[in-house]
Nucleic acid binder design. Structure first.
Length: 176
DNA sequence: CACAATGACCAAT
DNA sequence: ATTGGTCATTGTG
């Protein structure tokens, strides 16, 4: 494969939340640690760190300072139960499968505070019968919160969540 | 290429 | 609680 290495810049940081995040193990966080990967084209990954102790820091090249500031600003609002979003072009999803991208776009059509079933999201992604593949696409989402996979739930029950159902419940509670 | 295997599903036993 | 039906992606030869 001709893998031309695209430089990835990783940074870790914390955001305050109005609604403390309580993990299943009992830990309670008022400041939530994230890790973000940026390329020159945009945000490639946003993850919430579950570890106990997290080293905060990292360096970004000058041209990424502005997007990083925007990211922190939007996240601060979202973790304070306020509506805020970035544009689709904020992301760098180059090496993602076609169907996955359709599902991710469909998820961003779900309004703040609303939820959809996997089946419904599959349908708005153009494949009404692909509810199961839709679940896979949710699991493949690399951008927490901003691509709101937490708004997709099961037809009976909350469904799953890659990084822990405690986080999914918290994200949904932030939108009530 | 052609498969088999895998899933954050779903509706009906 | 189990099952048979679905679909797109990913890994293997």
């Amino acid at each position: 494969m001709s893998t031309k290495q695209i430089p990835l810049h990783t940074i870790t940081f914390k955001i305050k939340t109005s609604q403390p995040l309580r993990f299943d193990d009992g830990r309670v966080l008022k400041e939530v640690p994230f890790e973000a990967d940026f390329t020159d084209k945009g945000l490639a990954r946003l993850a919430l760190l579950r570890q106990k102790e997290v080293p905060i820091g990292g360096t970004l090249p000058a041209q990424l300072k502005k997007p990083f500031a925007e990211l922190k600003s939007v996240l601060s609002k979202r973790l304070s139960e306020k509506k805020a979003d970035v544009a689709w072009s904020f992301f760098d999803l180059e090496k993602a499968a076609d169907f996955h991208v359709r599902v991710w776009k469909a998820m961003r059509e779900i309004p703040f505070g609303k939820t959809e079933t996997y089946g419904e999201t599959a349908e708005s992604a153009g494949s009404p019968m692909a509810f199961r593949a839709c679940g896979q696409a949710c699991g493949a989402n690399r951008i927490l919160i901003l691509i709101p996979c937490h708004r997709v739930v099961g037809s009976s029950g909350i469904g799953g969540f890659g990084c822990g159902l405690d986080i999914k419940r918290w994200l949904l509670a932030l939108e009530t």
